[in-house]
């Protein structure tokens, strides 16, 4: 394996290790809140690694990463803000 490709395979190994940790945490009988916290943390780390290393955001201008992250967070929050209250209204028989 040439040196240029090594960082990519190091990322692969880290991603697999994080997945193994997630599976272990899931089968261990941890308190649910702690388990969810660890799983979400590991998930965020995996998303960051895939975006930064595999999708090569680390080589783009920093503003690209900011635009991508902000767009998803902003519109994601927008979606949640409209879906969740509406959902609870339907559930409560409001309409």
């Amino acid at each position: 394996m040439q040196d240029i490709y090594k960082p990519l395979w190091r990322t692969w190994a880290i991603l697999l290790s994080l997945t193994a940790v997630m599976v272990l945490v899931d089968v261990m009988e941890l308190p649910r809140q702690l388990m969810v916290l660890v799983l979400l943390g590991a998930m965020a780390a995996k998303v960051f690694l895939i975006g930064f290393e595999f999708m090569d955001l680390k080589r783009e201008k920093w503003i690209v990463g900011v635009v991508v992250t902000f767009s998803i967070l902003f519109f994601g929050a927008f979606l949640f803000a409209f879906i969740v209250p509406d959902g609870f209204a339907v559930l409560a028989g409001g309409r």
Binding site: T11, W12, L15, I50
Partner: peptide, 14 residues
């Protein structure tokens, strides 16, 4: 799937 992502990243770098 993660392994296929690593092979794809290697293809892009290559």
């Amino acid at each position: 799937l993660i392994s296929s992502s690593a092979t794809m990243a290697t293809a892009v770098a290559a």
